[in-house]
């Protein structure tokens, strides 16, 4: 069995895995990071999106061995020092989730969109979310969340409104 060494959420991990092991399987089954989900088997739904060396990747169609030596960030690693990432905060603030199953992948993709494109308009957000399917929200509030999260990431505008 090949040995794979990854930096996952800032910590170095090494594991012997079957060569056919997918990155998502290594994350969920070997490292017990179950925040990354599997919603389909055709790389369409995006529930499994993580960041590999800073880029959004569908971990259900990436072999763990392909990522040897890479730095992986999952939804569990997004908050820093107990403080939510602005995009996480934006999803909560704008009710960008209901059942929560697509949410980790949705947030990881949203962060990637902003990393690549900065502040984005609604049409761009909708196009960029092509690879993430949500069945609950109708995307309306996801779009609002990504708009707010982008502003917060780029300019530090606080996500949280004054009143609830």
């Amino acid at each position: 069995m090949p040995t794979v060494t990854l930096t996952v959420n800032g910590r170095s991990v090494t594991a012997d895995v079957d060569s056919r092991t997918l990155l998502v399987q290594m994350l969920r089954e070997t490292l017990h990071l179950t925040g990354t989900h599997v919603g389909c088997d055709t790389s369409q739904c995006g529930a499994c999106v993580v960041h590999v060396d800073g880029k959004a990747v569908k971990s259900c169609t990436t072999l763990a061995v392909q990522c040897d030596g890479a730095s992986v960030v999952t939804i569990e690693g997004l908050a820093q020092d107990g403080k939510l990432h602005p995009m996480q905060e934006a999803f909560r603030e704008h009710h960008g989730l209901q059942c929560g199953f697509c949410t980790p992948g949705m947030i990881m993709s949203a962060v990637d969109i902003v990393n690549r494109k900065g502040i984005v308009d609604e049409a761009t957000i909708r196009e960029e979310l092509e690879g993430n399917i949500c069945r609950c929200t109708g995307y309306h509030n996801i779009v609002r969340a990504v708009e707010a999260g982008a502003k917060a990431m780029v300019s530090g505008t606080p996500v949280r409104q004054a009143a609830e």
Binding site: G35, I75, E76, A79, R92
Partner: peptide
């Protein structure tokens, strides 16, 4: 009011 359950879902701590 913002949802109480969201914290676990946005941090990957939901348990399905």
């Amino acid at each position: 009011v913002r949802r109480k359950e969201d914290h676990r879902f946005i941090t990957g701590k939901g348990q399905y």
